[in-house]
Design a protein around this nucleic acid. Sequence first.
DNA 1: AACGGAACCTGAAAGC
DNA 2: TGCTTTCAGGTTCCGT
Length: 257
Amino acid sequence: MLELWIDRGRIESVAVHDARILDVGEVPARLVDALQGRRVQRVERRGKWLRVALDDGAFFSHLGMTGKWAEASPKDEPLRFERVRLDVVVGRAKRSVRYLDSRLFGRFAAPAEDLPIWRALGPDPLVDGIDVGALHAKLQRRKLAIKPVLLDQKVLAGIGNIYATEGLFTARIDPRRAASSLTRLETGAVARGLRKALLKSLARSTEDSITYVQEPGADNPFLIYGNEGMPCPRCKRPLGKMVLGGRGTVFCSRCQR
DNA sequence: AACGGAACCTGAAAGC
DNA sequence: TGCTTTCAGGTTCCGT
């Protein structure tokens, strides 16, 4: 959506309302300077990062877990949880886009060079696809449990706790299994499970809004995430939950081996 | 290098 | 009812 709102536009003004979404040591004034007057050339996504290429440089936006871009009118007052505001002229239209983030886990940056973290991202399952052989080789080198390895953005970009949980359930793999113990066949199943979970979520997202599971009124659209204690959709036994790599992990002890 | 655990932050939900 | 505590998530940092 952000792409639709600002592509080919010229950034008229920038306001950073809360500097906590910037990198440590970064100051709003420098960022404003880097963006003002620049033209947006394209918007790309890899994993949880957006990279907005400008005629000179680029800016990066990570949505954390509660971040979203929203379109507003330039006349509108700051929206609830607004942290950054960009006013853009696209053709004859004046648009104002706002970065909203209640929990401030997101990030906003306009570095001179591409962020190292962006360059280090693994392949994005939807943008780049998953090369099962390459993934299998990568997993072979990791002794850690498969679930925390999937959360490593250098392995695959964009896999968070929800998709790792869902993908492993679909692949019928126990999240505690050592990553190195997965066969190539099982790695293929995980790759398909992850893609399926991501695509399902993408299909669910409406034209112009993101609804997070945590938001009131949103019902749980996931197979097992958030459903601990409820019947497994496959075998009907109650789903278990444990902490793995510091994150809650729902699983079925019968279906996932 | 690889790993575990705590910290960051705040709204919602659960507990009292 | 209203206050307090706990929990969730993605990432970074610190110690081992």
